[in-house]
Nucleic acid binder design. Structure first.
Lengths: 152, 152
DNA sequence: ATAATGTTGCAACTCAGTATCAAGAAGGAG
DNA sequence: CTCCTTCTTGATACTGAGTTGCAACATTAT
């Protein structure tokens, strides 16, 4: 008995095709990697995984496909507090925005949804007359484990 | 009659010296640029301004000084939604955290303080047992002017 | 003044991301 | 199915932000 799925696989592909974009073999491969990723991946991790499915994919194509997905609001770009280098991480845009918390000691990334965050966004739109397209709330600090365990 | 000042000039210098750090001529120059900046500056803008005061300052020293200030929690590093390139922007850490809104059309950066944001941070600390060191909430979208004026 | 230690400038480097352009693939018209 | 237009790709070279290693130098304590 299959678990309930929030989103069917191939959703990104369907989205792009419905917008009249060409569906190439490379794009299909990269989209499937993005869709099945369990963690936040950077461009080079994405490339490595895509190449396991099709070794002929170039890193330039990964960057171009990510730019395409960003432009269409289908993925979000994260910095995750630049814990290692300046690279970016990517995730499918969720139904509901969430907060990313990065532990400065162990590096763990935790996600958190909050009504207060939703209300804050509403306040920004109202009070500032600002039409929100994308938000990014990143928090750096120390997670529960690292607060209580011995210092490194 | 002088306007009330939130912070006296030289505050960053005093902070660093009180922490036992060496105060070199270059650091003093760079700190004064950071303190008197009216907008968010990136590293190369900071270098240019510092060089107007002392032409012998190297860009490496700017990066090192910024890293020092970050480590001591005296400046915050911003991405401002990476509107042009991947560079970072810097501002003195304010008394109270604020939100940065970036207009995707005109590029204007607006700052916004909010009780809801303060409460949200409190909720994160409590509910997630997460000790917050730094936060960054950036919002991309369209400002009031750009929403009402003719499309570009 | 002197010595110990931290800081600087220089040059070379790393690494993420971008531009160019000829060759190749997608998809519609016939 | 084939041809044609248009878009996409891969290879290569490039850009630009930020870092590293090291000898020379400046700061602070003594």
């Amino acid at each position: 008995m299959p678990l309930p799925q929030t989103e069917a696989p191939g959703r990104l592909q369907a989205e792009l095709m419905s917008r009249g974009l060409r569906m190439t073999h490379q794009r299909r491969t990269i989209l499937s990697v993005v869709e099945t990723a369990k963690q936040h991946l950077d461009a080079s991790q994405l490339l490595r995984r895509a190449r396991r499915l099709d070794p002929r994919i170039d890193r330039v194509t990964v960057y171009r496909t990510l730019a395409l997905l960003k432009r269409h609001g289908l993925v979000d770009e994260l910095d995750l507090m630049h814990m290692q280098g300046e690279k970016h991480y990517y995730e499918r845009r969720p139904q509901r925005d969430h907060i990313h918390m990065a532990c400065l000691r162990c590096g763990k990334i935790t996600e958190f949804e909050s009504d207060l965050f939703d209300r804050l966004k509403g306040q920004i739109q109202r009070d500032c007359q600002f039409h929100i397209v994308v938000t990014r709330l990143e928090v750096g600090g120390y997670c529960a484990q690292c607060r209580t365990s011995a210092p490194a």
